[in-house]
Design a binder for these strands. Structure first.
Lengths: 191, 191
DNA sequence: ACCTGAACACCGTTCAAGT
DNA sequence: ACCTGAACACCGTTCAAGT
């Protein structure tokens, strides 16, 4: 069998969803494809690059059309899409967050948020800070959420089931913080 | 040489600060102590437990007295202390965040934040959400910050040096979000 | 272009046995 | 109580060589 980059990513996605990130090793993936681990290095420079490609594919598959017109509606859509995309695969949040921390993935959502907040009325110097705050929140919250979901589906603990409304609640909190600065600067511009 | 738990943690802290989290392996740590890796399992059930002890020690060493009287001043103090504690050791943020994601460490800051927000006037059902949002923010932001600091001190990139004021700015954003809910509920209680 | 086979330098963890 | 020695079942990565 001869494979392309895309075949490897596809298979990696299956291994991830079935066995989890910890079991997504080069040797395991090679075995799953019926190929020596070293063969994977023909397609990817190293594991990090492979994981980045997998993360990007997860986000690509979760992409949706924007419908909101207000800046805060669009921020909610972007963050919600990011969340749903990561929740669609086992350990998706951990994977995307790790890759992003390495400076490789999730460039799409980040650029979208920058673009939206740039037109929100938020003071220019606060835009990067707000974007990173939003992304840290989404990554952290969803990773948490997913860990608990997977733990409870494994029948381990009961705990508080922590439904998805928590995400909206917390995001609303941050959005309120941004709104304060948007309105503050609007008053300053037209006193 | 015969060691105690505390000696192992102390040495682990040195290895972490000198070589980084990736090089803090059981074998490496054993070697550093002049002991077989298996000897460490007399002191800790597994690596995860050892890392949790190291994370707790980092936070313990960063502990400070509270001086603020307002709820938002206290939240600022708690988050600032957490940040400084993690920044004091190489890869401190990544370590503490990882351990926390596993449900083991950083119980101190979490309980403190719950206690403070419970007396802030924030609606009771929002307290856990706000606390988790704050912690996700601090972990994510400081991990980011530390990665960049370490990259630039290694002479790799110039980039935006991203000073500590970013942290205060972003935290202020979230605090504003919380204030909106505190004041909202104050108006509801006394109409 | 894509893959094999073999090697290098590592991991975490267990367990019988020693002092 | 604390540690050794040996083993088990893994890692990521490199590289000459094959088709």
């Amino acid at each position: 069998m001869r494979y392309h980059r895309t075949d490897v990513v596809e298979r990696a996605l299956q291994v991830l969803d079935t066995y989890g990130l910890a079991d997504l090793s080069m040797r395991r993936l090679g075995g799953e494809l019926g190929v020596q681990p070293s063969a994977l290095y023909h397609h990817f420079a190293n594991k990090q690059t492979l994981l980045a490609a997998v993360a990007d594919e997860i986000l690509r598959r979760g992409a949706r059309q924007r419908t909101a017109r207000s800046w805060d509606g669009q921020v909610t859509e972007i963050c919600g899409e990011l969340r749903d995309a990561m929740l669609a695969y086992r350990d998706g949040a951990e994977l995307v967050a790790t890759v992003n921390a390495f400076g490789l993935g999730a460039a799409g959502p980040e650029q979208e948020l920058v673009a939206v907040l740039a037109t929100s009325g938020l003071p220019r110097e606060l835009v990067p800070v707000a974007v990173r705050t939003l992304l840290h929140f989404v990554f952290g919250h969803v990773a948490d959420e997913q860990t608990n979901l997977q733990a409870s589906s494994a029948g381990a603990i009961a705990d508080q089931p922590r439904d998805g409304s928590d995400f909206g609640l917390a995001l609303g909190l941050i959005l309120d913080g941004i709104r304060v600065r948007v309105e503050g600067s609007a008053r300053t511009r037209r006193p």
